[in-house]
Design a protein around this nucleic acid. Structure first.
Length: 958
RNA sequence: GCCGGGUUGGCGGAACGGCAUACGCGGAGGCCUCAAAAGCCUUUGUCCGAGAGGGCAUGUGGGUUCGAAUCCCACACCCGGCACCA
């Protein structure tokens, strides 16, 4: 041996070191790849395989699709991937055919922004990032079925994304049947006259453009002009789900403005009810279900018509949605959203006689006032709107409607606190019983009428109140009209009574309203799936036939988005694809001969590719269909306890609660309705892993300093001699606190990293990374290794002797505990139990019996697979242990021969007894009362009561 | 404002209503070594006590219970989500 060999290696040449770990890990990773160890066979078709394996019960285990980050991974990223891998390996060893793979969500804004920043074409940078990430993930020993991995940017993949878009485009929602159907069936009904067209004209008399317009009102994917979220800083429009509560873009944190633009929408609102009720069939964290319920926002109420005279001609009705129809007698004014259709119709030429100053906003005519108010409202960003929410603004339209119960005239206002997108865009205002209406009424000196008797002693005169009385738990008053009285009824009863009354007169009806809006589906970006849509010379959209898919994204030099000053609302989006005339203008034969068409130049949002990827994992090479029905039925079909079907375990961050998870459910349901799949929910069980946090150190200027170079002295922190502050935050390059899996693998090996990440705490909890503590799991592997392999000679030291009883009990208790922890995703406590068993063997100081060693290796195999495979082989076994049965606990050894019984006196522990587990209550009580320590503690006082919980506890009450 | 989740040693965390602090990190002491590193062993909630032993401890304050980290009520703080949704 040369004298450059480190001393440790000389002393123990066969110790488990980082070098040895690296050698073992690389070798087993190669082995698994060569042998296709993790290839999961489909029951039939292209990816079929070993019928024995395919005959086992299946488990489909998934991670949320990663985006291939240009910055590379830090140790926080693989937390979920390691967890699913451990679980998948455990399931393989308990007799399941396990499908676990990982693809890449590679379209979208982050990838494009990275490309723009680095000046590389997104195709090039994204593919390079995928290569890097695949390498980093392989190093962790993840047991993925690589045959099933793909990226959303692969044309063979997005061909099907486009195909699904066309399925959605060519469908409508039949509310009677409660499901989507092909649009052709609707056309047939129009043509046959069994269903009337919206304006009543026969279908045959409509022009092609008119028909297209009508159908657009039914299609589940449609282009329409509507108020959308325009984000000049990103140069694109955004879905509601991508705008934060304070009116900024979720990505980039830029201001968002409302703009009326023609955009592609998905009619997700048609599915609001099913998206809500089917949550009950899912095994998801309650918090996530709640977020989805809140986002969908079902509320029961009524529509009520308020008659109003048109300024020029005829009578109209303003239809409002309210959840407080019981307070109809208290409606003293009305408000329309500024964009409401009826505003111009009802606005008179001049202010009515004696109009209050504050109602006019100082303008000479209602039209002037409305125009000025609209202009001002439109220029406000959502951020400003939120900030000014307390100060109600608005203006009188000059018109009066009639309260249908009291017959009183009520002034009609416009105000931006009423949103066009919710309900009917119009409200009846009941200032006495609604806080917003109360604030508006105070600002505009409008009358209030108390119709719900306050229960808090404030009296019935709203003039004396500080805020509205909004409680439901009260009685109705002041609510008698010509032919209805609600007085004395409870809120609930009054709602029912007035709803019936309204319905009988045809001026209202009970109705359900949802907060959910249609999903804005187009983006003015380059890096996304092109729409399979072209427009003819009349601007009528045409779906491309399947044979023309995929519509490939053109390779262009100028892929940058057109972005603007983030605060400039007065801008409008421009699609990068529109710069490419050659691609945009095409001649196609869509069935009536070659004609000129113009391609749609918007692209799909990055959510599109992740809306259905779980299905493609099942059958990734199919060129005839998006997924073969037998494969879908086998892996995702409904079964006992999973009536909706879906993935068995889906692990990912909670931040996707209402974005990806809602969209994916929607697409899945459409595909289910159209008969392409047998499951009606994509993800049966959802688990949200926590975040790995890291300390951020900042200097006096507030600038982050490299965390690795900070020193701790006496509870304070110093960087380059200067004191710095410490807070817990996210891990990331910009905060200079990123730790990479590569560093930890190099220092200790992948198995140590896997164990450490799993041992840090419960999987669903966020916790800080602590590099110093990683060594603890390294020591566990070293001790495990030393219990089986001689560090001097490398020889296996296990013996064929029978294990002693104590060791057998320790083993079977560990097997019992670890098995249930593994099944419950409690890997931290599973590791603790394995550690205890291993420490027990270490402490015994004797060679380990073979049977114990083999069980221990199998127990830890899902967590530290490389080390386990290597020890398994050294123990003389051939091949991979990936499908070897997991140890099963022998109940005879799970329970100790004697258990420690604590004896309490007045709830304090005074004695401990070793007793057989099966001891009878009476016997245990006698034993306890006879114990000298207990006798002393009782001190002769009369015993009032003895609680016996054999065999663990006796409590003596004196 | 509304709705969730959380608060246990110096640190990460364990604990079917029944021995609080498993397991790991860190600290202290020891073995081995010329020495160090690595490894191994012991110890480590806190206060009082020389010791035996005892008191006090699961954010705060109440309650239920023979018995509460665990169940109930109120409060404080931290982290998420929603927020003019009629």
């Amino acid at each position: 041996m040369s004298d450059t060999t480190p001393a440790a290696e000389t002393a123990a040449p066969h110790r488990y070191t980082a070098e040895l770990a690296a050698e073992i890990e690389g070798r087993w990773q190669d082995y698994w790849e060569e042998h296709g160890t993790f290839a999961a066979p489909n029951p039939s078709g292209e990816l079929d395989g070993d019928p024995e394996l395919a005959g086992r019960p299946k488990k489909f285990i998934m991670d949320m699709f990663p985006y291939p980050s240009g910055a590379g991974l830090h140790v926080g990223h693989p937390l979920g991937y390691i967890a699913t891998d451990v679980f998948a390996r455990f399931q393989r060893m308990t007799g399941h055919n396990v499908l676990h793979t990982l693809g890449f969500d590679a379209f979208g804004l982050p990838a494009e922004q990275y490309a723009v920043q680095t000046g590389t074409h997104p195709q090039v940078s994204t593919e390079a990032n995928i290569v890097t990430m695949r390498r980093q993930l392989r190093r962790l020993g993840l047991g993925h079925d690589r045959r099933r991995s793909f990226a959303t940017i692969d044309p063979e993949y997005y061909r099907w994304t486009q195909w699904i878009f066309l399925q959605i485009y060519n469908s409508w929602y039949d509310t009677e049947a409660g499901r989507a159907r092909p649009i052709d069936e609707l056309v047939a009904r129009f043509a046959a006259g069994t269903r009337a067209t919206p304006d009543g004209r026969p279908w045959a008399e409509l022009t092609e453009a008119e028909r297209a317009d009508v159908l657009s009102g039914y299609r589940l994917a449609y282009a329409a002009e509507s108020p959308v979220n325009w984000c000049p800083g990103l140069g694109t429009v955004l879905a509601n789900e991508e705008v934060t509560a304070d009116g900024r873009s979720e990505r980039g944190n830029y201001p968002v403005f409302k703009a009326n633009l023609r955009q592609w929408m998905m009619r997700i609102t048609a599915y609001a009810d099913r998206l809500l009720t089917d949550l009950d069939d899912l095994d998801w964290p309650e918090a996530i279900k709640l977020q989805q319920r809140n986002w969908i926002g079902r509320s029961e109420g009524a529509r009520v018509d308020f008659p109003v005279h048109g300024a020029a001609d005829g009578d109209y009705a303003i239809t409002v949605f309210t959840t407080r129809q019981d307070t109809l007698f208290g409606a003293t004014y009305m408000v329309l959203a500024p964009e409401h259709d009826l505003v111009d119709t009802i606005t008179p030429a001049a202010w009515p006689e004696g109009t209050h100053e504050v109602w006019t906003g100082g303008h000479a005519t209602p039209a002037d006032a409305i125009a000025a108010y609209r202009k001002q409202a439109a220029s406000k960003s959502d951020v400003e709107r939120q900030a000014e929410a307390k100060d109600k603004t608005g203006v009188f339209t000059g018109a009066f409607a009639v309260n249908p119960v009291s017959g009183e005239p009520v002034p009609v206002f416009i105000a931006d606190y009423v949103l066009m997108g919710y309900g009917t865009g119009a409200i009846m205002a009941v200032p006495a019983h609604d806080t917003r209406d109360f604030a508006f009424a105070r600002a505009f000196e409008l009358p209030m009428r108390c119709v719900v008797e306050p229960t808090d002693g404030r009296g019935t005169d709203p003039a004396a109140w500080d805020d509205a009385f909004a409680s439901y738990d009260a009685r109705i008053i002041n609510s008698s009209g010509a032919d209805i009285s609600l007085d004395g009824l409870s809120v609930t009863d009054a709602k029912a009574a007035i709803t019936t009354w309204l319905a009988e007169r045809g001026i209202g009806a009970g109705t359900v309203n949802y907060r959910l809006r249609d999903w804005l589906f187009s983006r003015q970006r380059y890096w996304g799936e092109p729409f399979p849509i072209v427009y003819d010379e009349d601007g009528v959209p045409h779906a491309l036939p399947d044979s023309m898919l995929p519509v490939e994204l053109p390779d262009v030099d100028d892929y940058s988005p057109r972005t603007f000053d983030p605060d400039d609302a007065d801008t409008s989006p421009e699609t990068p694809l529109s710069r490419n005339a050659e691609w945009v203008h095409v001649e196609l034969d869509l069935g009536d001969g070659p004609r000129r068409y113009r391609r749609e130049t918007n692209t799909m949002p990055n959510w599109a590719g992740s809306c259905w990827y779980e299905l493609r994992y099942l059958d990734p090479y199919d060129t005839e269909q998006l997924v073969s029905p037998p494969a879908e039925a086998y892996w995702m079909g409904p079964r006992d306890g999973q009536r909706a079907g879906g993935v068995d375990l889906y692990v990912g961050g909670a931040e996707h609660a209402v974005l990806h998870l809602l969209y994916a459910r929607f697409w899945h349901k459409v595909l289910f309705d159209l008969g392409h799949i047998s499951s009606y929910e994509p993800f049966h069980k959802l688990f949200n892993q926590g975040m790995i946090q890291a300390y951020v150190y900042r200097d006096a200027r507030g600038i982050a300093v490299p965390a690795a170079e900070v020193e701790e002295r006496d509870g304070a922190y110093y960087y380059a001699g200067e004191p710095v502050t410490r807070v817990l935050g996210k891990m990331g390059k910009s905060l200079k606190n990123a730790v990479t899996p590569d560093e930890i693998c190099a220092e200790y090996g992948a198995d140590t990293l896997r164990l450490y990440e799993m041992a840090m705490g419960p999987l669903d909890m966020s916790r800080p990374w602590d590099t110093r503590a990683v060594v603890g799991q390294y020591r566990l592997l070293q001790r495990l290794w030393r219990n089986i392999v001689d560090e001097q000679t490398g020889a296996v030291t296990v013996v064929d002797a029978d294990p002693d009883e104590e060791t057998l009990r320790a083993l079977h208790k560990a097997i019992d505990g670890v098995t249930s922890d593994m099944a419950g995703l409690r890997f931290n406590t599973a590791i603790a139990k394995i550690t205890e068993l291993n420490n027990h063997l270490t402490r015994s100081g004797r060679p380990v019996p073979r049977a114990i060693a083999e069980s221990l290796v199998l127990l830890i195999a899902p967590l530290a697979p490389h080390t386990a495979e290597e020890l398994w082989t050294r123990l003389g076994r051939v091949g991979s242990l990936a499908h070897t049965p997991y140890p099963v606990a022998d109940p005879a050894y799970v329970q100790d021969e004697t258990v420690t019984c604590v004896v309490q006196v007045k709830g304090k522990v005074k004695a401990r007894l070793e007793v057989p587990p099966g001891i009878a209550d009476a016997e245990l009580e006698a034993l306890a009362l006879a114990d000298p320590a207990v006798v002393a503690a009782v001190g002769g006082a009369p015993v009032r009561k003895v609680i016996v919980r054999a065999p663990k506890l006796v409590n003596v009450v004196v």
